[in-house]
Design a protein around this nucleic acid. Sequence first.
DNA 1: CCGAATTGTATGCTTTACTAACAAATAGGC
DNA 2: GCCTATTTGTTAGTAAAGCATACAATTCGG
Lengths: 154, 154
Amino acid sequence: MDRPALIVDNDDTAAPDLGALDGIVGFHIRLAHGAVYRHFSETFTGLDMTQKQVSVLWLVGDHPGIAQIALGGRLRMDRATTMTIVNRLQERGYLRRERSSSDGRKQSLFLTPLGESALEEAKACIESHETWLKSRFTPAEIEKLVEMLSRIHD
Amino acid sequence: MDRPALIVDNDDTAAPDLGALDGIVGFHIRLAHGAVYRHFSETFTGLDMTQKQVSVLWLVGDHPGIAQIALGGRLRMDRATTMTIVNRLQERGYLRRERSSSDGRKQSLFLTPLGESALEEAKACIESHETWLKSRFTPAEIEKLVEMLSRIHD
DNA sequence: CCGAATTGTATGCTTTACTAACAAATAGGC
DNA sequence: GCCTATTTGTTAGTAAAGCATACAATTCGG
């Protein structure tokens, strides 16, 4: 009697029965992340940028001249990952590199005019995306949620 | 005066100054997900399984004979993605496919004995991982967090 | 019975993330 | 000032995960 031999076919296709997995916090974070990511991609196909690319553009816009290492630090990416994303955005003409005048090892990053308009468009998209996301919470809940998520990522 | 020309070098490498990005809920979800994923991978290198693979193993253990389509539905994966993960776990000898007796289109999935012991080990790992994650919250907060995350992923 | 839908499968592409190695520049100890 | 260690960027390779598309087998519905 080590396994329920009766249950050979399991056809409850759509039921959200997750069993003990439902009690795992990390599992819910992953599912929620996936749902947000999917909504972002599905809704803004015309934008043709990922969340990550928008984040990078956004940070460079807020901190003109920021170095790649600082960028990666804020978004929790290592140097190699930061490289590939910056490369893509540069190839698209959204940002440019410039040798830092104060530290020859660093690259200063700047938005191009094209990048600035792309960022502006992206911010409008994110706003409607955020509205969709926040619609299921009260302002107090949103504050609490962000505060709790911050405790996780520091 | 359309850009702050003074700020050419931006050397605040470690500061968590995210500016307006800090107000974006989706951004915090992504960061939190990344932190959880990273802790999982770093802590359980010996396990050599990803969160996703463990989730699949776990669900098959809870629902012996489950079809791939049902598995994917619960974990919000499409058929192709489910395939690659099931393939990997099958190659490793953790689960086996069997034609469903009630529906010839479906494959019934079962854990092998090896898969069952791997799942057992993985569950122990997840427990300590969850302890790390939950350590920053009260039980009431955890309940609230999971409930809010569930509202996002339905 | 026949067309439509479902399920699995195979292929190819993209993004993200990591490691390891290397070069150039800087920083620190002496 | 000199030498070593560290930092930063870069390149190359690997892997997981996700998506789209196409196809075959099976089942379902009228």
